[in-house]
Design a protein around this nucleic acid. Structure first.
Length: 577
DNA sequence: GCCGTTTTCGGCCCGACTGTTTTCAGTCG
């Protein structure tokens, strides 16, 4: 039998169906239903295949009889007759055209039905030949836009990793806050929700005279092109194909605008539903009473309060149950960066790190950490100058010496990031692992192994009683490579049994586990750790991104072992052997 | 196609911006 489709793959299939139906010209609500089902699948904390076995597919929000049947067929057979038929009606490559900016389903349908276009090459040829300008609703400008859009599509490589967008936006916001009359300027959208990748950058500013802010924004030195500009909203493009849009509202309405622009779309729909039940109307423009008068909210707290809710942290605003939780007073007490007391995964010049043990220890101490685990690579990772057994012994002596010098201001532990070899064995025998204070096992090589093989490999490490942590479990690179094809449910089950802690690697190019996996792990009672994997003192600051990912997974401080004091950590590691 | 402390049928968020269609359709978030 074929392996089970993942939730992600199912979601992709339903989104693809929605796109095809939209080009075909189906009623919009049918299309929205497929997209809603896809959203739910992605937010699901357990595999749909599991729900299928227990006959609970209909319990997925937004999944009714028709979609449940299709899901069932996909999970059971690996294909879907409905989709195969649809693909004979609508040329599948048309879906790719939706990626072109300013080209939506209606335009694609127009190009297809009126100009015979079935793929990107044909569209480009038609545009260059001037064959689009004569179509209904098209002119020369629209035709040029299509060509420019195709070029932009070729340049950009999808969404921007959070780690790139974040520092860029800090600079931009600092400049906007300097503009005379600007009362506040904040990021919004997926960036504020701390998703691992960001589409466009959304910003909201409070000012009484929007024109001054708009001028400053569209003339910012980093701006390469102004895409659109109005009184309340402007959209620009920077170098490297970063796009940003700015909304400007008067200060007394800033909370309403910020809340709306932060989203997510589905979270906003929930809020709107609550507003409607109270006879209120909530939109990006205004929050209105039944008589049409406006409820002005300068802060988000006021928006939520009007709806009878406590303020919901942006990281939770994904319509994954947060509004219901807020209503019943069951919002989690989220982990905060200030709760972090320990860094459990760091590198030094003993392998591929840039700084000495002492420099790293001093940097950790300055950041208020009470425990630092030095976990250089093991010998198997040759490119990183991994340590041999003998090297580990010499390193232990230096760690002890640095500890002497630093006194009890910070506790240094000797760990090791031990290779999980391609055959599933660990780089060191058990008696060597037993001498280490902390053992982190990680996959770095042969990540492309088939599912069964690589899962088995990771399970070997999870079940080794000397292993305390699993580093960046899937090996994914944000905006780069997919994670290994792991059976994550099997990994979670084994972790639950062995008590091993799974890492959220805080480096923004990893963020691995991701938020959905992390939430599933927490639901199963698995303890998480959040580590920077720092190779230099500055990288210790990346913890922030890992904490954000954990917050998106609804993590509390107690569920993350980095919040523990040194004594508790030491006894936990010791008890694990 | 989904859903129900207004409904098992009739809704499903809605406004800004752009280009072209001189009154609106398409896209976007």
């Amino acid at each position: 039998m074929n392996r089970q489709l993942t939730n992600q793959e199912l979601a992709q299939t339903f989104r693809y169906i929605a796109d095809l139906l939209e080009i075909k010209g189906e009623v919009i609500y049918k299309i929205l239903a497929y997209r809603k089902a896809a959203d739910s699948l992605e937010a699901l904390s357990q595999p749909a295949s599991e729900l299928q076995r227990s006959g609970k597919l209909l319990e997925i929000p937004g999944v009714g009889k028709a979609i449940a049947e299709k899901m069932d067929e996909l999970l059971s057979t690996g294909h879907l007759e409905f989709l195969e038929k649809l693909e004979t009606e609508v040329p599948p490559e048309l879906v790719g055209l939706l990626q072109i900016p300013e080209v939506g389903p209606k335009k694609v349908a127009l190009f297809w039905r009126q100009a015979g276009v079935t793929n990107l090459q044909e569209l480009e040829a038609a545009a260059r030949a001037g064959k689009l300008r004569g179509l209904q609703g098209m002119g020369e400008k629209s035709e040029a836009k299509v060509l420019a859009g195709i070029e932009a599509l070729r340049r950009r490589s999808g969404r921007i990793p959070l780690g790139k967008a974040w520092p860029f936006v800090q600079g931009l916001l600092a400049d906007l806050r300097q503009v005379p009359g600007v009362n506040a300027a904040e990021m919004a959208g997926s960036l504020r929700r701390m998703r691992s990748t960001v589409g466009d950058i959304d910003l909201v500013a409070a000012a009484n005279d929007s024109r001054v802010v708009m001028e400053a924004f569209t003339h910012h030195p980093w701006v390469r092109q102004v895409v659109s500009q109005g009184d309340t909203k402007a959209s620009v493009e920077f170098e490297h194909n970063l796009r940003a849009q700015l909304w400007v509202h008067p200060p007394e309405r800033f909370g309403t605008a910020l809340c709306y622009a932060t989203g997510s779309k589905d979270h906003n729909v929930r809020l709107r539903e609550l507003a409607l039940k109270q006879g209120l109307s909530l939109s990006d423009q205004a929050f209105l009473r039944p008589d049409g008068s406006e409820i002005l909210c300068a802060s988000e707290q006021e928006v939520y309060a009007q709806l009878g809710l406590p303020w919901i942290p942006p990281e939770l605003r994904e319509d994954r149950g947060e509004v219901q939780a807020a209503r019943s007073g069951a919002l989690p007490a989220l982990l905060d960066l200030g709760d972090i007391r320990a860094e459990l995964h760091s590198h030094t010049t003993w392998s591929d790190g840039k700084a000495s043990i002492e420099t790293m220890a001093e940097a950790a101490r300055q950041r208020g950490l009470k425990t630092l685990v030095i976990s250089d690579h093991s010998v198997g990772l040759g490119v990183a100058g991994g340590l041999s057994v003998e090297g580990l012994q010499r390193q232990r002596a230096e760690i002890d010496a640095v500890q002497q010098r630093l006194g009890d201001s910070i506790l240094l532990l000797q760990g090791c990031e031990v290779e999980i070899r391609a055959d599933g064995t660990l780089d060191f025998p058990d008696e060597v692992l037993a001498r280490l204070d902390v053992v982190t096992a990680s996959l770095h090589t042969s990540l492309g192994q088939p599912r069964e093989q690589i899962t088995h490999r990771l399970l070997n490490a999870v079940r080794n009683r000397h292993v305390d942590l699993i580093g960046h479990p899937t090996g994914r690179i944000v905006g780069g490579r997919e994670g290994a094809d792991l059976d994550m449910e099997a990994v979670f089950a084994a972790a639950q049994e062995s008590g091993v802690s799974l890492e959220i690697n805080a480096n923004p190019s990893r963020l691995d586990l991701d938020d959905v996996h992390a939430r599933r792990a927490l639901d199963l009672g698995i303890r998480l750790c959040i580590n920077t994997d720092a190779h230099s003192p500055q990288e210790l600051d990346l913890e922030f991104f890992g904490v954000a990912t954990a917050r998106r997974a609804w993590a509390s401080a107690e569920q993350v072992i980095n919040t523990w004091e040194p004594e508790r950590l030491v006894s936990w590691f010791a008890a694990r052997g």
